[in-house]
């Protein structure tokens, strides 16, 4: 039997939806939702801070140090989504020795919600990556690799919906072309599909059929290749529709602030990337307003600003 309390909550929700919140305090519209998106990319097996050897990055990074920041943010915020844009593996002896096991365990302990695959995640071979996923409690999301004839079959998701409060977030992943970058012996029968085509399909599906409020593309394509026709986050964003945010990697780009690019409908796409090695933790706080419509409005640009 439905309790009165539940009934009031549901009615409140619907009233809020109809934009007709009554003046009585009991039936006030719910507060706006807020999501804190945290992200890393190209951590490259940097479990410990960079060594104190006089180099530029000495003392920076480290999973125990990153966790400290994440914990603090989780304490202060109800809805946090933690993502990684690939190249988890390769770069310190940890990977040479343990093939990715401690990296996967650390990311699981940190509560990562998802990661996509970078080219270096194939470095121990695709079978190794699939095997190391036994140590991961988060999904690997990759939409433009088809793994049918490989050990990754059944071990990845083409996209995933995350529900944070009343917000539906759709996340899909794009990997870089492997041929010429990764030896075939390592990626084996992995089939690469055009990121642009797959992104269009994914974003449309997530918006129209999965009714997502926010669509995030986790990309390991690289930030920007200028006049080179090779697909990048910037060129993808400009030719896209329905992607709200691209969390990028591969080019180890230290963006001082996210790049905002207009998509083909003139609506803005936010692109961010935080270098490499776990030196920085990226953060975007997103506020949502209730809109009562049959279809997603899709015309309102977010105000993008530095967090005060």
């Amino acid at each position: 039997m439905q309790s009165r309390r539940t009934f009031i909550q549901q009615t409140t929700w619907l009233l809020g939806a109809a934009g007709m919140a009554p003046s009585t305090g009991v039936l006030a519209a719910p507060a706006q939702e807020k999501l804190v998106l945290l992200h890393t990319n190209d951590v490259h097996s940097r479990l410990d801070p960079f060594p104190m050897d006089g180099s530029r990055n000495q003392g920076l990074g480290g999973v125990a140090q990153r966790m400290q920041l994440i914990k603090q943010i989780r304490n202060e915020n109800k809805h946090v989504l933690l993502l990684d844009a690939g190249d988890i593996f390769q770069g310190t002896p940890y990977f040479n020795f343990f093939k990715g096991e401690p990296e996967m365990k650390a990311m699981s302990a940190m509560g990562y919600d998802a990661a996509t695959m970078g080219n270096h995640d194939f470095d121990g071979g695709i079978d190794n990556f699939a095997k190391q996923l036994e140590h991961a409690n988060f999904p690997v999301i990759i939409s433009n690799y088809k793994f049918t004839a490989t050990s990754m079959q059944g071990n990845y998701k083409p996209y995933q919906i995350f529900k944070k409060g009343r917000i539906r977030i759709g996340v899909f992943g794009l990997g870089i072309e492997l041929e010429g970058l990764v030896p075939k012996s390592l990626y084996q029968q992995t089939i690469y599909h055009s990121p642009q085509d797959v992104a269009d399909e994914m974003a449309l599906h997530l918006r129209k059929y999965e009714k997502c409020d926010l669509i995030i593309c986790l990309s390991h394509l690289g930030f920007d290749y200028g006049k080179n026709p090779k697909i990048s986050d910037v060129s993808l964003a400009a030719a896209s529709a329905d992607i709200d945010i691209i969390i990028g990697g591969h080019t180890h780009t230290f963006l001082n602030e996210p790049r905002v690019v207009a998509n083909k409908a003139g609506r803005q796409v936010i692109i961010n990337q935080v270098g490499w090695g776990g030196i920085y933790l990226g953060r975007i706080d997103i506020e949502f307003a209730d809109v009562h419509k049959q279809k997603f409005a899709g015309t309102v640009n977010m105000v993008v600003e530095q967090k005060s």
């Binding site: 409020d213 209730d290 993008v304």
Partner: peptide, 10 residues
């Protein structure tokens, strides 16, 4: 009810 992203603070 859609939840339209309105603000992104980085």
């Amino acid at each position: 009810t859609w939840h339209q992203p309105t603000r992104a603070a980085w």
